[in-house]
Design a protein around this nucleic acid. Structure first.
Lengths: 208, 208
DNA sequence: GTCTATATACGGATAGAC
DNA sequence: GTCTATCCGTATATAGAC
């Protein structure tokens, strides 16, 4: 079978380095990762890292940028999908994130801890208003409140609850496993359950 | 006025170094902090850091250990307080953590990101079963469920919701501020509101 | 494009004077 | 106890051969 561009790209040296860099940075952060680790991990020579990406810093920026995209683009597209309704959007966000983070559990903590010292990266990268404040989702939340005569909720409280319930367990997974005395398999099962439960709970909160 | 031991201790060189180390480690983590930064921050000489604490690693372990204590001891004592009831415990935990993290916003992300590579620190330090699994609080949760004939909830889901709603906004504060286009003052106001709201929402979830 | 060897800088830690 | 000066290992980055 002939290889398409994507497949070729994935096998190139450049992509191998990027894949290893992603893995290491996600695991240990910028300061905790050595370029030698990345080189070793990808089986290439250290000099090639600088040949392709110029510096550790530049390579990191690339990974960070892509990670932010991956994390926020799905939020943006779900929240602004014109065809789905309110409930469907909540279900989609939760399912989407739980599955993504089960697959790649280190992304959220990576983003949050690196953002701590460089919050500007996010501001430059993500149009906050379009992602959430002016999203289709938010007007649907408004409609929901009016239609069902339920108490208004500050959108920020709403999103904190939604992301808190969905993302926090992954950010805190070692702590959760320790507190609950459970292993990775138990943890994943719980997260799978939450795909159904969180949307339910979110609705219960709205009605309270 | 005569100074007591605590005050003297707080002014000592040793304590000044510890205070700066705490600040820097909380902000930038172990790998991101240079011993020179700590020395400069505290106005003391770099050599004194090693004189008092032997090594960066040892100093870090000390800070980490104290931070874990601070974070979990309150959880433990609230959850095992024999005189408070179920609702009071929830209110106490939320109030306690919101106030603590408003005062010192970097602690939770510090703990979580450092724990990522050394989960054992937590296991050694915190008796998971006593903090939560065998706590007075958990038996009260059981009673609550039976008495009110509400649906059972896995305790792990419960604690994930409680801590997720309470802790996550602080862990993700740069992201929350960006998404909501708010400043520190707005953020603190929201967090203050959550002291009342989260216990309410937690109850709504239980009844759902 | 890929390698080996190396320049250069940085960070943790200590020796030794005061 | 506190300082200055310095050692030494380590990490990033580059020069230059192939």
């Amino acid at each position: 079978m002939e290889k398409n561009k994507k497949e070729v790209k994935n096998n190139s040296t450049e992509e191998k380095i990027k894949a290893s860099a992603r893995k290491m940075f996600h695991q240990k952060g910028f300061a905790g990762t050595r370029t030698r680790d990345i080189a070793e991990e990808s089986g290439i020579n250290l000099a090639l890292l600088n040949y392709y990406f110029r510096s550790k810093e530049k390579l990191f920026q690339l990974i960070m940028s892509e990670s932010l995209d991956e994390f926020f683009s799905s939020l943006h597209s779900v929240f602004n999908d014109p065809v789905t309704n309110f409930n469907e959007k909540i279900e989609a966000v939760v399912k989407n994130y739980v599955e993504k983070m089960t697959e790649n559990p280190n992304i959220p903590l990576f983003i949050l801890s690196e953002l701590r010292n460089n919050p500007d990266q996010l501001i430059k990268k993500v149009n906050a208003k379009k992602v959430f404040l002016q999203s289709v989702f938010l007007s649907q939340l408004d409609d929901e409140i009016k239609a069902n005569r339920i108490n208004a909720i500050d959108p920020m409280h709403f999103i904190m609850n939604l992301l808190g319930m969905t993302v926090f367990p992954f950010v805190a997974s070692p702590m959760m496993k320790s507190i609950g005395d459970i292993d990775q398999e138990n943890f994943d099962t719980l997260m799978d359950e939450r795909k159904k439960l969180i949307p339910m709970w979110i609705k219960a909160i709205l009605k309270s």
